[in-house]
Simulated scan of single mutants.
Amino acid sequence: MTFGDGTTDAAPMPSAPVVRIDCRALRTNVEAMLLRSDGEYSVADLRHDAWGHGASPVGRALLALGVDAFLVDERSGNGLAEELRGAAVGASGGPTLDSAEAFGLPGTGGIPVMRLTGSVLVVKALRAGEGVSYGFAHRAAADTRVALVTGGYAHGIVRGLGGRAGVVIRGSRHPIVGRVAMDVCVVDIGDADVRRGDAVVFFGAGANDPSVGEWTEATGLTAAELVTAVGLRAIREYIT
Rank of each mutant, 00 (worst) to 15 (best):
S99W: 14
V19P: 04
V227R: 02
A16M: 11
T219D: 11
D9C: 08
R36M: 02
D188H: 03
V187P: 01
G129R: 03
A141V: 07
L65N: 05
G178D: 01
R24N: 12
R195K: 12
E214Q: 11
S133N: 09
A32P: 09
V113R: 02
R115T: 15
V72I: 01
S119P: 00
V30C: 12
R24A: 12
P175Q: 05
G129A: 02
V120E: 03
Y41C: 02
E40R: 04
V158L: 07
T222K: 07
V132L: 12
L148N: 00
V89M: 05
R164F: 14
V18D: 03
G220R: 10
L63G: 05
S211F: 08
D68M: 04
Y41P: 06
L148A: 13
A11C: 07
Y134P: 00
R85L: 01
L26W: 15
D22I: 07
Y153C: 09
A234K: 07
V89I: 14
L80W: 02
G162W: 13
T7W: 09
A218C: 10
R85G: 02
A205T: 07
S133M: 11
A125E: 06
A16S: 14
T108W: 08
G190P: 14
G79V: 03
R24V: 10
P210S: 13
G77F: 02
D73I: 00
A102K: 04
D209C: 06
V67H: 12
G79D: 00
S37D: 05
W51N: 13
V89G: 00
P57R: 12
V168E: 08
D209S: 06
A154H: 15
V120R: 00
A140P: 06
T7N: 09
D98M: 12
R127E: 10
R27W: 12
Y153A: 06
I239K: 01
L232V: 08
P14D: 10
H53K: 06
A64Y: 11
A137M: 11
P57E: 11
A87I: 06
D143N: 11
D193G: 00
L126R: 03
A223Y: 08
F203S: 08
R47T: 08
V180Y: 15
E74D: 01
G104M: 09
V58R: 01
G66I: 03
G178R: 07
R164Q: 15
W51V: 13
S133H: 11
S56I: 12
R159I: 04
E225S: 10
A207H: 15
G94W: 10
G54Q: 01
G54A: 05
